Amino acid sequence: MPKKLFYSFHFDRDVWRTSQVRNIGSVEGREPVNQNKWEEVKRGGDAAIQRWIDAQMADRDCLVVLIGAETASRPWITYEIKKAWANRIGVFGIRIHKLLDAAGNPCVAGPSPFSDIIAVYDPPGPRSTDAYAHIAQNIAGWVDTAIQHRKRYN
């Protein structure tokens, strides 16, 4: 049975890269939020963003943080990580800097937003296609591992 995921990422900078991961299809997540909807949520201020995140994270099995160049510095990503841990769901990260953006460019690898107990996967290979293939082949197992890992910390 597919797991219910919440993807956390820097929307403005990484939405193109993250859509590649979300479209792999081997795991389930909520429908991606489009830019118009995200702008509408943001106009409601911090309280509206927090309510939206809380509602979207309800009944999820795992938080997948898609780590780009600036992900670790984003306050809402920090909130999502803390919320996931408090909700006792699996948490892990995937570095997406090798995946290409809409203009066909990779980005630099950013720092991890996690402590040492959270796994971060950095797909090997020099090309975007290598990274994508590695993520596609392994993401379902990473989700299962993160869920089992979190259960040990309850």
Rank of each mutant, 00 (worst) to 15 (best):
A84N: 04
D59K: 13
T145I: 07
L100C: 03
I118K: 04
I117W: 15
C62I: 02
R60Y: 01
N87L: 12
L100I: 04
N105H: 02
I89P: 01
K83R: 15
L63C: 14
K83S: 14
I81D: 05
A131Q: 05
A146S: 06
D101K: 00
D59W: 12
L66K: 01
K151F: 06
A133C: 05
H97N: 13
A131I: 00
I89K: 02
T145F: 07
P124R: 10
A140T: 04
V108R: 12
T129W: 04
D130V: 04
I94P: 00
E80Q: 13
R60E: 11
D122Y: 04
A131C: 05
D116V: 12
Y121F: 11
K151I: 05
A69K: 13
H134Y: 14
H134A: 15
D130I: 02
Q56Y: 07
K151G: 06
K83N: 13
M57C: 06
A136E: 09
M57Y: 12
Q148R: 15
R127G: 01
A58I: 05
N138D: 07
R60Q: 14
A109C: 09
A136R: 04
A146R: 05
G141E: 06
T129E: 13
K82R: 15
K82G: 09
V120T: 15
A103G: 00
A103I: 01
R150E: 14
K98L: 00
R95G: 13
G68R: 09
Y121D: 08
A55G: 05
I77F: 08
A131R: 01
G68V: 10
P106L: 01
P126A: 15
N138H: 13
W142Y: 14
P123S: 10
A119L: 10
G90D: 07
D59I: 01
R88H: 12
Y79H: 13
P124S: 11
E70I: 08
G104H: 08
S128Y: 01
R95C: 11
R74C: 10
P126G: 15
V91K: 07
G104N: 03
P123A: 12
E80R: 10
N87D: 13
K151T: 08
D59H: 10
S115H: 09
V91A: 08
P124Y: 05
D101F: 04
I94K: 00
E70L: 11
A84F: 03
T71G: 09
R95A: 12
I118G: 00
I147P: 03
D101L: 06
G90E: 06
A146Q: 03
R95H: 12
A140N: 10
C107E: 14
V91I: 15
A119N: 14
D144Q: 09
